[in-house]
Design a protein around this nucleic acid. Structure first.
Length: 964
RNA sequence: GCCAGAGUGGCGGAAUUGGCAGACGCGCGGGACUCAAAAUCCCGUGGCCCUCGGGUCGUGUGGGUUCGACUCCCACCUCUGGCACCA
């Protein structure tokens, strides 16, 4: 098709030509005051670490595509960028290199900006923010003061997680899986005076408002929901024998009558007073041991329960029963009240604990399935029992060692009567699960209370010496595997064995008990959260100083707003240090009395910096206020927020909290900062690991073997990271194929919310496509430039032309909808590829100049968000002098997409047996379509004379025939 | 253990509302161009069977609903992520 060789695609030259063009033309500068058709697109701002790899690029490339798309659609789109620049990695890197973290950070920022430039990713750089610079952290400190003013920042002595490696305390959220999120060290427990933000005040709203976030991924909302961990239940007050109160939180007040013991956290303040002299040594030893344990050890579910008896007793307020008080490390001081009532019959943990320590277990909630089991040991009943049971229609399994029965609870009493008649002297059996009866030769005892437990055990001990090793009925039954699945359940069901409340149906149980508790003053409805207040003090240098002064006379004094920022002292960076290590920093005067005072020497958690940055972009340069209220209210909430799912809890929860707090203070008029959220997947790549020499660069690997020892390597896919040596540098790709190719491939390789694997072959495929487009355009450039510009009539075209025109319209629709709605850039690109394939065939055969012009111009425009450099170049090559971004996004017409005829598959008895080409006007009518198809020769041939029982025609789609 | 999400050719993935499974791309096979190679272009490409018309199986497994199921329902398996002694 190409007579003379087409001009080569010189991506280096092209990209160099346009690299600064868009920025210079100011396309990406958004006016703050103009709020018509606004769209606030935001990428989570990066932490400026070493260098960006192609995986990082994904996030920003997506943003750039969306921004360019909305620009062409006439929106005022704001897409700003900044730097989350405070934090430990900068300090650690600075220590390693012997430089100041500020220099390291600012260097990285400069590099990253250069990287964005190479990628063709444009921002409104006039709004750049850098959290480690005083013009930003001044306002982070302002935020702290506002929270303090409104009682949302407070200082308290608390047991906190302290990471010995990072030399600082950690927020609850920064302890992941029991270890420090950053370095993997199990944190130590320390008691320190620290600053907290009162996020728990907002727990309910943070949870409830998740329902309003329709544009958020379900999994992120679920993660936040779990994190907040709202539990509804009651607080019940128990008293010790000495009259001391022990308040417990429970989600199951309906099980109160089954509370046969209590457990306190080892750290619980009452433990000392409860402990009797005889138990003192055991208790002290246990507490010392518990204190030493790391969180990981202590919270392992696998672990067997441990604990000791305090010697003290409490009174169960519902039945006046005396119950022992134990301490155990499975009860956490940090949740609820640090004390629980143990209901072993209906709580798995309490059950395990009670079995281990021989504490009584009394069922107080009926099984909903009524499943009841019984075992009659061989020789314990006479031979007639089998016949009698069979006659009464009880099903059982006979094994060598006895009869195994499973029945419904309703028939347990009938069963007991039958069996009792046949029991031999000195034997017994029992029913367990739906009904609890102990059947002795001379007596039937219902297992419904601690007294019954004792009476039954007494009986058994008298009859069988072997039963003496069991302390409780449940312990005895649990030794027998057949019963294992009926001894314990945690379902809601009818209350039993609970005095006047017995018989209360499951649905009403909790509610009824709570109102009774409230009436009698024994307890009240209560809600508990897993969420804790946010600990924000950090004992490190590289953060925003907490703007607080301590005066001997005036106490805690906030630094007046006019004195902000409290600047980080500009000292030589000498390694791991906090502000407390800097001589003179703390010394100051009290803003109130002028007397000597000391500054707080902690800095704020970096998540404070990032919890409000999306507001600052609106007024990035304003030095009077953190943000202009009207402008922020106009621009926010963010229309589309995009970032990694790793921030699902920390950053997003904190930002939502700060927004709500600012709303309550009257600074913003919205309650959620991010209307829509998209979490992009990670980019993975092969990583090679030698069992002896660790991670290897792909370039070092020879035939899958280690270059040092020749050993077979472990090859697996991991998200790109420096430590695994599997990162691909953008420069490698840009040098070899250009930034357009990298952008296109990154978007084409898969749906953006999923993890994807980077492949060199895939990059070449994208490069090939860009080349194909280039060749198509430059070989037709003169023709397009010379073609008539007026509208042409698509109906006047030949078949191939009309087909291409429809394809073009269909592509416009698909690309528009894929970018706007689903973020499915991969399918948008494949549609453009199909268009290019068809366009090639068309121009090969000559074709209509007007159509070629329309298609090529449109092609360049819809491809331009993906590959902006080459599109800008091609746009000029076909005779334009203005820029792509000056053009409107092409509109499509639904009517132009409609095909003239369609191939309708015909199903006969559910299988496609024929295809019939049907004119559209017939295919769009169900009746006409089925008649047309039935009249078709190929179809009637397939019918083979059989009778059509039913014909279902779906207009434009298919026909389904049922024949007999 | 609990809660999400996923499972489709050799590979990445598509099928947007229950309507032609495998679009598009990679890889592979064949061909053209070339002294040759690379690049590029064209053709083919789920498995099995075939008389070359087609037939048949096929979307993790087993059931079900339906004229029709990758899609909906039930049960299960595997993988990924989050939480995990949270009372």
């Amino acid at each position: 098709m190409v007579e003379e060789r087409a001009e080569r695609y010189d991506f280096k030259e092209i990209e160099e030509r346009w690299r600064d063009f868009w920025g210079e033309r100011g396309f990406f500068r958004a006016p703050t005051s103009d709020i018509e058709k606004k769209f606030y697109y935001l990428n989570m701002f990066p932490y400026p670490s070493g260098s960006l790899h192609v995986g990082h690029g994904r996030n920003y490339i997506i943003g750039d595509v969306v921004t360019r798309f909305y620009l062409m659609r006439g929106y005022n789109i704001l897409n700003p960028m900044g730097w989350d620049a405070f934090g430990l990695p900068a300090e650690n890197a600075a220590i390693e290199r012997g430089i100041h973290p500020r220099d390291w950070t600012l260097d990285n920022i400069a590099n990253a900006k250069e990287q964005f430039r190479a990628w063709g990713i444009e921002y409104d750089w006039d709004r750049e923010i850098t959290t480690c610079l005083p013009d930003y952290y001044k306002w982070t400190q302002w935020l702290f003061l506002k929270l303090y003013e409104h009682g949302l920042a407070y200082k308290k002595k608390a047991t906190v997680n302290y990471c010995p490696t990072c030399d600082t305390v950690l927020a609850n959220e920064q302890v992941v899986g029991g270890v420090c999120e950053r370095c993997g060290t199990p944190p130590e427990q320390k008691t320190l005076e620290q600053w907290f933000f009162k996020i728990t005040d907002y727990a309910d709203r943070l949870l409830d408002d998740l329902k309003t976030l329709d544009g958020w991924p379900e999994n992120v909302k679920k993660m936040q929901e779990n994190w907040i961990g709202r539990s509804v239940g009651a607080e019940v007050t128990f008293h010790t024998q000495d009259g001391e109160e022990i308040v417990v939180f429970t989600t199951r007040p309906d099980t109160l009558w089954g509370a046969t013991f209590m457990v306190l956290a080892p750290e619980h303040p009452l433990v000392d007073r409860l402990t009797t002299p005889e138990q003192r040594a055991d208790v002290d030893a246990y507490r010392a041991q518990a204190a030493k344990q790391t969180a990981v050890e202590r919270t392992s579910t696998e672990r067997e329960k441990t604990g000791v008896f305090t010697g003290g007793y409490a009174i169960n307020p519902v039945n006046g029963r005396e119950i022992p008080v134990w301490i155990a490390d499975y009860v956490l001081m940090t949740y609820g009240t640090g004390a629980i009532m143990a209901v072993p019959a209906h709580d798995e943990r309490d059950f395990a604990f009670a079995i281990k320590f021989g504490l009584p277990i009394i069922p107080v909630i009926a099984r909903t399935d009524g499943r009841t089991k019984s075992y009659i040991p061989a020789g314990s009943a006479d031979d007639a029992v089998e016949e009698a049971l069979r006659e009464a229609k009880f099903h059982f399994e006979k094994k060598e060692d006895g009869l195994y029965l499973t029945m419904d609870a309703d028939r347990a009493d009938e069963y007991a009567k039958i069996v009792q008649k046949h029991l031999k002297l000195g034997s017994w059996t029992e029913t367990a699960g739906g009904r609890w009866l102990f059947i002795f030769h001379d007596e039937l005892i219902e297992f419904d209370s601690v007294e019954a437990d004792c009476a039954i055990m007494e009986h058994c001990h008298a009859l069988d010496d072997k039963s003496r090793k069991y302390r409780t009925v449940m312990e005895m039954m649990s030794s027998f595997p057949f019963y294992a699945d009926v001894l314990f359940h945690a379902e809601h069901g009818k209350i039993i064995n609970s005095g006047d409340f017995s018989g209360t149906p499951g649905e009403q149980a909790t509610e009824k008990v709570i109102s009774w508790l409230e009436k009698t003053g024994k307890g009240k409805a209560a809600i508990n959260f897993r969420l804790h207040d946010w600990l924000i003090s950090r004992q490190r240098y590289w953060g925003a100083p907490i703007p607080i002064v301590y005066c001997e006379k005036c106490g805690i004094v906030p630094v007046p707003e006019k004195d902000l920022p409290v600047e980080l002292p500009d000292v030589e960076f000498i390694g791991k240090m906090g502000l407390a290590d800097i001589p003179g920093y703390a010394e100051t005067t009290c803003p109130i009395c002028g007397g000597p005072a000391r500054r707080d020497t902690d800095t704020m958690d970096t998540f404070v910096d990032s919890s409000w940055y999306y507001l600052r972009y609106i007024s990035a340069k304003n030095d009077e206020v953190p943000f202009v209220v009207e402008d922020v209210n106009n621009w926010l909430p963010v229309d589309q927020y995009v970032g990694g799912v790793e921030h699902a809890i920390l950053h997003l929860l904190y930002s939502r909290f700060i927004t709500k707090a600012l709303q309550d203070m009257g600074y913003v008029n919205f309650s959620e900062p991010f209307k829509r959220l998209f979490t992009q997947g990670m980019v993975c790549h092969m990583a090679y690991r030698c069992p002896e020499h660790g991670w290897l660069f792909p370039s070092e690997v020879k035939d899958g073997k280690c270059p040092h020892c020749g050993r077979e390597l472990e090859i697996s896919n991991f998200s790109m990271s420096k430590s695994k040596k599997n990162v691909v540098a953008p420069a490698e790709i840009i040098d070899a194929y250009g930034a357009d190719t990298e952008r296109l491939y990154t978007l084409f390789m898969g749906p953006p919310d999923r993890d994807i694997e980077w492949s060199e072959e895939g990059v070449r495929g994208a490069f090939r496509f860009v080349n194909r487009v280039w060749t198509l355009v430059v070989t037709n450039a003169e023709r397009v430039a010379a073609a008539p510009t007026e509208e042409f009539d698509p109906t006047a075209l030949d078949d191939a032309g009309r087909s291409l025109w429809r394809r073009y319209q269909r592509t416009l629709k698909k690309v528009t909808e894929d970018i706007e709605g689903r973020f499915n850039f991969n399918t948008a690109i494949s549609a453009i590829m199909e268009l290019v394939n068809e366009a090639y065939r068309y121009v090969d055969d000559g074709g209509d100049d007007g159509l070629v012009r329309a298609v090529i111009e449109g092609l360049i425009l819809i491809l331009s968000p993906f590959t902006p450099f080459v599109c800008e170049e091609m746009w000029r090559r076909i005779g334009h002098e203005d820029a792509v971004l000056d053009q409107a996004w092409p509109e499509f017409s639904e009517t132009a997409i409609v095909e003239e005829q369609v191939e309708i598959p015909v199903q006969i008895n559910g299988k496609v047996r024929a295809r019939v080409t049907v004119p559209m006007e017939i295919a769009s009518d169900a009746q006409a379509l089925s008649e047309y198809v039935l009249a078709n020769e190929a179809v009637s041939h397939k019918l083979d004379g059989k009778k059509v029982v039913k014909a279902i025609a779906i207009p434009g789609k298919m026909v389904s025939l049922v024949v007999r």
